[in-house]
């Protein structure tokens, strides 16, 4: 892989690559990532505690991908997400309270508590759902992209998918159709190296996922998925390609989840070593971004970043309080919304 690690790049190199953003934008990125991290930490805690029913797949360690990509989108753009989708939902501007309440299964959840973690929808944000089926959202996004082009409404569609999903027929078939039909679509692969527990390398001959895009005639690029500015800069190019010229792209983001596949699964010890997890923790997208911003803007920004952390924590605490106290729908409401 040709990519460089974020911390290997000098500031000059990053500016030259067009990655570096202005201070306000940088603070936005940091805030968005901090919100996702705090949200996931709290959600995981309440799953362990048992007050959130069901189970969740936390996005911890991968925040830079959702934030970098979604930062390049317009409000009307369509997004499909995955089973590990809270970060995408929050980065698309869904209400944190509503997303948390959805995990709690409450009436005030994004979709009345009938979906939960893997089925978060928000029509007002054109958010076509987190998805319990691996790669299930990829053709849906292509369909939204088709509708956009057909109706000439100018948006684009983005589909997040994991490395595991890139071996699913839905991904492979859609990749070809999107290229053949010139759809305004960006497919973002979050390569966290494991399909649940199976190392990508064990089940895939070619490790370079971007080659799959190249093979079908689609623009494809690989970036450091733990570097929010690099993700953002590359996503902007892909978005421009889709919006301006109705051409799809494959954006592969190399990243890692530093937690278990689902909350409750051991972080390491079976299919991953502690050494590997620790090495990736050193590349944590949020901690490193904080360091970089302090390096770039001086110690004065440290205070602002600490305040952002604190505010994110407060926002999450208030979402938890709200969700805990929100009512459930009446059981009989389970019979609604089957047909129109």
């Amino acid at each position: 892989m040709k990519r460089k690690k974020a911390q290997d790049k000098t500031r000059g190199e990053r500016a030259e690559a067009g990655c570096e953003v202005d201070e306000d934008r940088a603070l936005d990125f940091y805030r968005s990532m901090a919100r996702v991290r705090k949200f996931e930490e709290a959600a995981a805690q309440y799953v362990r505690e048992g007050s959130i029913p069901g189970f969740i797949h936390a996005y911890i360690g991968e925040e830079a991908v959702a934030v970098g990509v979604c930062g390049a989108l317009e409000p009307g753009d369509y997004v499909t997400s995955t089973h590990r989708g809270h970060g995408h939902a929050l980065s698309r501007g869904l209400s944190m309270k509503s997303v948390m309440a959805e995990l709690w299964g409450k009436r005030d959840g994004t979709n009345l508590g009938r979906g939960g973690s893997m089925h978060i929808f928000d029509a007002s944000r054109h958010f076509l759902g987190t998805n319990g089926i691996v790669a299930g959202g990829v053709p849906l996004a292509a369909g939204a992209a088709f509708a956009i082009r057909y109706k000439k409404t100018g948006q684009i569609a983005v589909s997040f998918v994991g490395d595991g999903g890139t071996n699913h027929g839905a991904f492979l078939e859609t990749l070809n159709i999107a290229a053949a039909f010139d759809l305004p679509l960006v497919i973002v692969v979050e390569n966290n190296l494991y399909a649940t527990s199976t190392p990508y390398a064990c089940v895939t001959k070619t490790q370079d996922i971007a080659l799959r895009g190249t093979a079908v005639g689609m623009a494809a690029e690989t970036v450091d998925g733990n570097d929010v500015e690099e993700v953002h800069a590359t996503a902007r190019k892909a978005v421009a390609r889709a919006r301006g010229g109705s051409r799809p792209s494959l954006l592969v983001c190399q990243t890692y989840r530093t937690v278990g596949h689902y909350e409750g699964e051991p972080v390491a010890g079976t299919y991953r070593t502690w050494e590997e997890v620790e090495a990736w923790k050193q590349k944590d997208p949020i901690i490193n971004y904080k360091k970089r911003l302090i390096e770039r803007y001086g110690a004065t920004i440290a205070e602002q970043l600490d305040r952002i952390d604190e505010e994110a924590g407060q926002e999450v605490a208030s979402a938890v309080e709200f969700s805990r106290n929100a009512p459930f729908c009446a059981p009989v409401e389970a019979t609604e919304h089957v047909y129109g």
Binding site: T80, L128, A145, I148, I177
Partner: peptide
């Protein structure tokens, strides 16, 4: 590609077609 074009039809229907 039945899987993909059926899914595309579903996504297109969610987006107004």
């Amino acid at each position: 590609s039945e899987l993909a074009f059926t899914g595309m039809g579903i996504g297109a229907s969610m987006a107004g077609l």
